[in-house]
Computed example of a mutant assay.
Amino acid sequence: MPSYTSLEDSVLNAQRLLLPEILKGLNQRSDRAGLFHLVGHLGMMGVSGTLWLTQMSENWAIALPALFIYGITLATMFAPLHECVHRTAFASDRLNAAVAWFAGLLSFYNSTFYRRYHKWHHRYTQIPGKDPELDDPKPQTWGEYLRELSGLPWWIGKLRGHFRAATGQLEDCPFLSDAARAEVVRSTRWQLAVYGGAIALSLISGFPWFLWGWIVPLAVGQPVLRFILLAEHGGCTEDNNPLTNTRTTLTLAPLRFLMWNMPFHAEHHLYPSIPFHTLPAAHQELRPYLAYLDQGYIRVNRQLVAGFGTTK
């Protein structure tokens, strides 16, 4: 395993893992691949959501499984958001921006804020004091772990974060320039306005579909997303070695589909320019170099909880 002495050194060595001609082929963005995947994701959401809303008062044997699937499809709209802020989901930058905002709307993220936040996460992955993701400590006890899986900290964080963004309280966000802060404020206000309009229409219609069609399903899906995201860097090294600070998790095809191949996470961090649809091919090239390559999210989470109370 290579030993890196600086962030620049680690990036330089990572860029040498793939031959230029191979990387060029893997870097090909595609509107067709992105739209095909998006239609499939939204199709699953539409079918499961329709079954949930039409059967919730008729047949719970159908409604509950539909709710579970629908909730996961809503929560995992985080995945196309993530791909689009990298501008790799589509060849068109306009399409990336539009789908990112829409996916953020459904998953309760703001794409304008997340794009800057996530850029710093990639720039300073697992570097204490610099990686903004480390501002939210990983669970160290069973209580913290179950609370994280519940999604409660995420809901609280999102409500506080959107309020602070909408009111311009972004001084503690070093990844935002003055110009970016103004853009984030506008984008968040528009997003909250859409939610407000949806709530108003829900009340006028006489059926609380904003609650049953969005909030409840998203709350059901969040534990699954938390379970997945804990594996990306949990238990990995907190240093600048991109081969050891990120994990790839081999999982079932339906989950890979809904997560837009994000389970190939180490490959993504090594080469963020590689679009989601070529990450499986990148995995075949890079897997010999990866320190953390695990079979399934259950196994990873078992490893994480087994480490509670131990000192790294």
Rank of each mutant, 00 (worst) to 15 (best):
P132G: 04
M262F: 11
L12C: 11
Q284P: 00
D239L: 00
F163L: 12
V99E: 03
A219D: 05
R302Y: 12
Y124M: 05
L53P: 03
G309L: 12
L53Q: 11
A291Y: 03
S10M: 01
M77W: 05
S3Y: 13
Y117C: 14
M45Y: 00
F68V: 14
E8F: 13
P272N: 10
G161A: 08
V194W: 15
M262P: 00
I199G: 10
E83W: 01
D131S: 00
Q140N: 11
R247W: 03
A253N: 10
G234P: 08
T88W: 01
L293K: 07
M77S: 15
S6I: 12
E238D: 09
H37K: 07
W214T: 07
V224H: 11
G168D: 01
T248S: 14
N110H: 08
H122E: 04
F113E: 13
N241L: 02
F175D: 11
E238T: 11
W142T: 09
G25R: 13
E21P: 05
Q15L: 02
G206L: 05
R256E: 15
G234M: 02
S150Q: 04
L146I: 11
T188D: 01
N110K: 12
L225K: 05
E83Y: 02
A182I: 12
T73H: 06
P137L: 04
Y70V: 02
L286E: 03
V47H: 09
L218K: 07
A100I: 10
M1P: 14
L286S: 10
Y145A: 07
E83F: 03
G104A: 06
L26V: 08
Q284T: 09
G34R: 03
T141K: 10
R186L: 13
N110R: 13
L38K: 00
M44K: 00
W212I: 09
D294P: 03
G235L: 05
L170R: 11
A200Q: 01
V194D: 11
D31R: 00
F102H: 05
L159A: 13
P2V: 14
L293M: 09
Q15T: 07
N241A: 06
L218E: 04
H233P: 04
T310K: 14
I199A: 13
K119D: 13
T278G: 03
G296M: 05
G221E: 06
T73C: 12
W212F: 15
L106V: 15
P275L: 02
L201P: 04
L279M: 13
L81F: 09
A75W: 00
Q140P: 02
D93M: 04
L211W: 10
M45N: 13
I215V: 15
R247M: 02
W154N: 09
R147S: 09
V216L: 15
Y292Q: 07
S205L: 07
A75D: 08
A306E: 15
P242F: 02
L146Y: 08
A291I: 09
F276V: 05
V224Q: 05
W260R: 06
L18Q: 08
A75S: 13
T246L: 01
D9E: 15
T73Y: 06
A97T: 08
R299C: 03
A97H: 13
F175N: 01
H283K: 04
I72P: 10
L255E: 06
E144Y: 08
L230D: 01
H265G: 12
H277C: 00
H283V: 07
H41K: 05
L17M: 10
W52D: 06
